[in-house]
Design a protein around this nucleic acid. Sequence first.
RNA 1: GGCCCAGUGGCGAAGUUGGUUAUCGCGCCGCCCUGUCACGGCGGAGGUCACGGGUUCGAGUCCCGUUUGGGUCGCCA
Length: 609
Amino acid sequence: MAESMKGLKRTARCAEITEEYIGQKVTLMGWVAAVRNKGGIVFAVLRDRSGTIQIVAEDSDPRWGSLKTESAVAVTGTVQKRAGAVNPNMKTGSIEVIPEELRILSVAQTPPFEVKDGIDTREDLRLKYRYLDLRRPELQRKIIMRSRVVQLIRDFLSGEGFLDIETPNLIGSTPEGARDYLVPSRVHPGAFYALPQSPQLLKQLLMCSGFDRYYQIARCFRDEDLRADRQPEFTQVDMELSFVDQEDVIDVNTRLLTFLLEKMPPVMRSLGFDEELIRGIEASAADLRENGIGRITWQDAMDRYGSDKPDLRFGMEIRDVSETVKGCGFGVFTGALENGGVVRGINAKGQGSMPRKKIDKLVDTAKTYGAKGLAYIAIHEDGTCKSSFAKFMTEEEMQQLIAAMDGQPGDLLLFAADRFRTVCAALGALRLVLGEEMGLIDHHAFRFVWVVDFPLLEWSDEENRFMAMHHPFTMPNEDDWQKIDSDPGAVRAVAYDIVLNGTELGGGSVRIHMDDVQEKMLEVLGFSKERAEEQFGFLLTAFKYGVPPHAGLAYGLDRMIMLFTGSDSIRDVIAFPKVKDASDLMMRAPSAVDAKQLEELSLSIAVKE
RNA sequence: GGCCCAGUGGCGAAGUUGGUUAUCGCGCCGCCCUGUCACGGCGGAGGUCACGGGUUCGAGUCCCGUUUGGGUCGCCA
């Protein structure tokens, strides 16, 4: 059935053949993408990772007419100018190969779905046969692009003096933060390694060792629920620098991103990406080259966009109307204010005639983010209003509120009154929903922003204590540090995120290098001396031997590639992704293991009901 | 853990207020076709309607449960 390729050597990939090859003999190897048997003449399409080329078999091997698609074959033949019509949609559309020899290296069964672009096959089936799905050109180019981008990142960072240093994947567990994946130790019964959530502590130690500028394309593991942009294992572009401050990190990373955006378009073009997407990247590259990347403080981002990862592709900013409605007759507003909350709104321009049903859906959206409801004013074209709360307010109060929101005839004003965080979450989410529905988002635009001045701490109702917003080694803002006891929540951190189109691409911080500040920080976080010593002792000790001031940043590579390739999910840019419940549909992992393996690990299983 | 969406030949879909033999496109198989490229023509095979239970004279359709995926909230220092 399967034939040997003995004596044959591939001379080029399919789509690398150009008109310059006309008259030359080539040997191509790839997969049968299509067979069009016209009777006396057979047109076959051969595909490999470069693309496709047409083979025209006439008075040749009779097997050409009955080739099974997706079979792996080798073809030796001569390149010629097309005898028939040129196909302008094909890179090799002006040439074809007249075969002399066909070797069927491996016959394919009929695949469970058609291996071509534009299919709408359920993702679970595609994931079960991921190796076939990955043959499809649209996935091939994404995976290839990922490799190219990684290479560009390495080129840039290497040129900037960064060293690529690997850190271990079997490390100690630190319960702070995300859940760890644990690996049992055979030689230490009852003891476990953890897989790293990030190389954070190790890269800080590398700074202590003097490696100055480090980077790593690091696999990270977090045992948390999945999302379209979250996988249990994912890849970070991780970096750390010594003797630097925030400005140095932002500078080198702004240049890195500019470099990527400038270098990507020709690569993407040769891989056949959507031209509009490429133009968007080119426009963004020009913008970054000229203007750099803008900045917004965390507070500003929350106030104006209701999010610490604002999507700047459109406006519709949130406005605070707490002052305006103070003392009005609407109890929901005044009640929220009395409890220390805020009243804020967004103006959906031109949506004043939105049907009640749609408004109700917006209310439901707000509720999923913890808001108890949503108040609205629909301003009709004739200037009259329909409002859910007009009866509680005087006409004058209504007019003041509308004026505060810059409400014009035809607008829809939506208000949330609650705690600051809840109002931000609800209006931030509504803004995104409305921006999408109203067609305000340019899907080919790339809008970067640095979000700076994050809070150092975040109150956790669940833990009933302050938690580190970034991590416990984040440098507090010097100007705020004296408030660490009186008003810990008001202390800002020297932490920053890079945000693209409403997605957090990466984040980092300046790290604490003074042991007194670090000790105080751990104390505020509720670590006893003993527990701090137990978990981070090696780091705290290292800091006693001459730690340099250092800072760093880590990108989510998968998300970056997702956005750059115009994908909706990081599953599209990961060769073998896992599904929502963190299992692998192809390998059927995770799975039970032999009793013998468990015994070696001194483990027994007690499944909870 | 909560909420929402989906599951109908290999793939994608249609299937009306519950009513005859479950329809269409792609793919697959056979025959024909010497310039096709979303090839075309003729013919054919292929279905536990995700699974289990219930309501009913009768269920792809209604109800309950389960399951497999997707989205999302919580979670993700």
